[in-house]
């Protein structure tokens, strides 16, 4: 007797849960204002990407052209496909010590998989991802970028 009751109860439970699912999709069908996809080339002017979006690797510089990279090379070591090359330079500080600074921070966009290991592993938070995603160019060489601006220097060096 119980098994018969379970059988019939199962049918009603099943139909009820199916109806619940259909209510949800039905609501989505009616609410056309909640559409999440956008028409891309038309909305270029007002398109806003999200904070966590990984566009391309950049080195943020402040208004006085200072960055935070000290040229340690950890990002280069951590990059799984060798898209970062750090060429360091040496300067003599005012105290007479020799100090390593960043010469050129080369980033090969063509090889980057946007894994984000460089940004995560940077000890001084010098790297970040930009929101730029329109990377298409006609010349392959344009995909090799130097991240530190010419004439820029480390924030700490100013304090000394």
């Amino acid at each position: 007797m119980k098994s018969i009751f379970d059988y019939i109860a199962g049918i009603f439970k099943g139909v009820w849960s199916l109806l619940k699912g259909m209510t949800i999709t039905g609501k989505y069908f009616i609410r056309l204002d909640k559409i999440v996809t956008q028409k891309y080339p038309e909305n270029r002017k007002k398109l806003k990407m999200y904070d966590r979006f990984k566009g391309e690797l950049i080195m943020p510089h402040d208004v006085n052209n200072f960055h935070k990279c000290n040229g340690c090379g950890i990002c280069e070591m951590n990059c799984p496909n060798g898209s970062i090359e750090v060429i360091s330079d040496k300067i003599i500080t005012s105290e007479g010590k020799s100090k390593r600074i960043i010469g050129t921070h080369i980033y090969h966009l063509s090889m980057c998989t946007f894994c984000g290991l460089c940004v995560k592993s940077c000890p001084s938070n010098a790297l970040a991802f930009s929101q730029e995603f329109e990377h298409a160019v006609f010349d392959r060489n344009k995909l090799t970028k130097v991240l530190n601006n010419p004439g820029s220097s480390l924030v700490k060096d100013l304090a000394e």
Binding site: T25, Y28, F29, I35, V36, T37, K39
Partner: peptide
């Protein structure tokens, strides 16, 4: 189109 609207998309346009 129906599938797109049920998934909050626009569909072919």
């Amino acid at each position: 189109k129906v599938c797109a609207f049920m998934q909050n998309r626009i569909g072919p346009n």
